[in-house]
């Protein structure tokens, strides 16, 4: 140990925002749920890099809200196929990409009651590119089987389904969901972590290359945008987050 500490080029939040942003880069309209500052940063970054071809809606904001027909409009809009990317989290996520936002333990006498499913049960089937984001990477979150299915990762062939989970991003990894195999594939591990750690901290089985790729670091253009226009745009929506998440 040299005792010399390297100043990281990017904060964890900036890396996660850049990683998530790349996964929605081809979107024309990305919607971000309430209380989701990192996905909101990601969507604004992707929109910034798209040179104006990418619309962003951030629920709970005034600045990035274009709907005028009440809370239902977003869902009608999604069912028509007008929205192509959405971020969603989960109290538990399993290897078949089922997500649980209702609670831990047997329903309804749950050990831990969570807020509820919100729009996930619906949007999970209708938005083509659903990106799962949960910062915490642990066996508590990434479980073999969720205790309650708020939204199902897989559907029988006869179910109307134009959307679904495509990616899972955590503080450790990017995983790609293969709906045909019904399994996640480890796409890359963020710098500073390794496969053993990922296997140790993941509760479900997944496919991987024995020598997995490293998540590409935030590039200069991404970092510059995150620290300028993204931060400025998000300031009114998430002031606390903006003051701590972005580097100088």
């Amino acid at each position: 140990m040299s005792g010399v500490q390297q100043v990281p080029a990017e904060t964890n939040e900036e890396l996660l925002a850049a990683v998530l942003g790349r996964l929605v880069a081809d979107s024309t309209h990305t919607v971000v749920g309430a209380n989701s500052p990192i996905p909101a940063s990601a969507a604004l970054l992707a929109a910034g890099l798209s040179e104006g071809n990418h619309q962003v809606t951030i629920l709970g904001s005034r600045e990035f809200m274009q709907f005028t027909d009440g809370g239902k409009e977003l869902f009608d809009y999604a069912a028509q196929g007008r929205m192509d990317a959405f971020f969603v989290g989960g109290g538990q996520i399993d290897g078949q990409a089922n997500i649980n936002l209702v609670g831990v333990g047997d329903y309804p006498g749950t050990k831990l009651r969570l807020p509820g499913s919100f729009g996930s049960a619906y949007l999970y089937h209708l938005v083509p590119n659903v990106v799962l984001f949960r910062k915490e990477h642990s066996r508590r979150v990434l479980v073999p089987k969720v205790d309650f299915i708020s939204a199902a990762g897989l559907s029988p062939a006869n179910h109307y389904r134009v959307g679904g989970p495509r990616w899972l991003v955590t503080e450790l990894v990017v995983m790609k969901f293969d709906a045909d195999r019904g399994r996640f594939y480890l796409q890359s591990i963020h710098a500073g972590h390794d496969l053993d750690e990922v296997l140790d901290r993941t509760g479900f089985e997944f496919d991987y290359d024995p020598e997995p790729a490293v998540t590409p670091p935030v590039d200069d253009q991404e970092l510059a945008l995150l620290r300028t226009s993204v931060r400025e745009s998000l300031q009114p929506v998430y002031p606390g987050f903006c003051s701590r998440a972005f580097g100088q």
Partner: peptide, 13 residues
């Protein structure tokens, strides 16, 4: 009628 939701445990509840 409403799209999506099929496969969710909500329907069983």
């Amino acid at each position: 009628p409403i799209r999506g939701i099929l496969g969710s445990d909500l329907i069983d509840l």
